[in-house]
């Protein structure tokens, strides 16, 4: 819930439209839920990107959970190994502009997503 509040505040300050704010907050909810379901805990980092032409918001979710064996499969809609609906990863990718996932078995998973204003 703390994540949601900070994401909302920062995305509003950056000037995202209401629809895009909603998409970003929803992606944050999906990805933090993933980390909670599969790893019990995780780290969340939010950054403002500014490459002189445009501004963006980047969120990084990292956990030290079991890791994902088959990322391609995990990205598919409807695939879930836990209690989710299996939309978290693929859905978040659609809601954001950039999506990057790194995972190692036994080490954990780091997901980085970005949306540009």
């Amino acid at each position: 819930m703390l994540i949601k509040a900070s994401v909302k505040r920062i995305s509003a300050l950056l000037g995202f439209s209401l629809v895009n704010q909603t998409k970003i907050i929803t992606a944050a909810a999906e990805l933090s839920r993933n980390a909670l379901i599969y790893a019990d805990q995780g780290k969340f980092k939010i950054s403002v990107l500014d490459d002189t032409r445009r501004k963006g918001l980047q969120m990084i979710f990292s956990d030290s959970g079991p890791g994902i064996e088959n990322i391609e499969q995990a990205m598919k809609d409807g695939y879930t190994s836990g209690h989710g609906m299996g939309l978290g990863l693929g859905g978040s990718k659609r809601l954001m502009d950039e999506f990057d996932i790194k995972s190692a078995i036994g080490v954990g998973t780091t997901i980085s997503v970005t949306k540009w204003v």
């Binding site: 629809v19 939309l87 659609r94």
Partner: peptide, 14 residues
């Protein structure tokens, strides 16, 4: 349901 929520849900695939 708010319009922004509807748009987001469709894109998410719910």
């Amino acid at each position: 349901m708010r319009p922004a929520v509807a748009i987001t849900m469709v894109e998410l695939g719910i």
